[in-house]
Nucleic acid binder design. Structure first.
Length: 293
DNA sequence: AGCTGGACCTGGACGC
DNA sequence: TGCGTCCAGGTCCAGC
């Protein structure tokens, strides 16, 4: 599920049951997700109080009382659900209704807040890692991350600067987490449509020869802001029945203008174009060639 | 150095 | 029904 708005929605769902609560039990039900779990993964979690739950780009970060940080990424198909523990179960055991994809419930936490938290990830592109807080800046997974798209430092000037000299497409540049961290395939397509910019445009065209941001860059940053904020307000997007931690569906998918709308009429007033799908860098791009230039 | 394409996984939708 | 193909919200890494 997870681009920035979905990860932020997950964070808000987990925060009430995680923050200030102790991890009574932690369990990893397989040796690896995308990477092997660290040998001391469970040991470093058990008994720790979660002092805060934050987000950086598409990562969730749980601060622990020990000074460690639990880093979590949802990959393509990761999700969390919050369930009530079964009081009949032994204290260290997780008993809960099994669904058809329970086989992909890979990580479980029992919190002192009275919640069990289950991480499910069929494709296992997600991962979790415990890092000492004072070593965060050396963490390779976080190293080259660009600015938060909703943060103060991300503006047209900064976007133009980081796209300077880039010969790749605008689509590919915006998906590059070093340029801006948190966008994915959906919100890049949506932001480009809302700013009427072609996904095939060369990224370097966001700046003038003097290195000043063009109006295009300003429009694009504005569109990124609005589409992300609107999506967060809607609880993210629910594709293929992906759910929030509470089991509720986000509803921003109903607001997609182009993503997964190939063949539909463009919604831009007086455009009259049709949404097309092309492949760029191996991934689908949805856009309207008529109003995106 | 920057960029592209393949690899990593599983499951759902579709066509025959 | 079953089998094959294609596609999916991400990102790392090799190779050009």
């Amino acid at each position: 599920m997870p681009e920035l708005p979905e990860v932020e929605t997950v964070r808000r769902g987990l925060q009430p049951v995680m923050e200030g609560a102790k991890i009574l039990v932690a369990e990893a039900r397989r040796p690896d997700l995308r990477f092997p779990f660290q040998p001391d993964f469970v040991a470093r979690l058990k008994g720790q109080v979660v002092t805060g739950l934050g987000r950086r780009a598409k990562y969730l970060m749980a601060d622990l009382g020990s000074g460690d940080v639990l880093l979590m990424h949802l990959g393509m198909s990761g999700s969390f659900r919050v369930i009530k523990p079964d009081n009949e179960a032994a204290p260290g055991e997780f008993h809960y209704p099994k669904g058809k994809d329970s086989a992909h419930d890979h990580v479980l936490f029992r919190m002192s807040s009275g919640a069990d938290i289950v991480f499910n990830d069929p494709r296992r592109f997600g991962y979790m890692k415990v890092i000492a807080r004072n070593a965060l800046e050396d963490e390779p997974l976080l190293r080259g991350l660009g600015p938060e798209p909703l943060g103060n430092e991300f503006d047209a000037a900064m976007l133009a600067r980081s796209c300077e000299g880039k010969t790749t497409s605008l689509k590919a540049a915006l998906l590059d987490q070093r340029v801006v961290a948190g966008l994915g395939n959906i919100y890049v397509c949506e932001a480009l449509h809302r700013s009427h910019l072609s996904p095939r445009r060369i990224a370097a065209t966001l700046s003038t020869k003097k290195g000043e941001p063009t109006d295009h860059a300003k429009r694009l940053v504005g569109a990124i802001h609005t589409v992300l904020n609107d999506a967060i307000k809607a609880g993210g997007s629910s594709l293929r029945d992906h759910r929030q931690t509470s089991g509720e569906l986000g509803y921003f998918q109903h607001s997609f203008k182009v993503y997964d709308r190939e063949g539909e009429k463009c919604t831009t007033p007086r455009c009259g174009g049709t949404v097309k799908r092309i492949t760029q860098n191996g991934r689908s791009t949805f856009w309207c060639p008529k109003c995106q230039k």
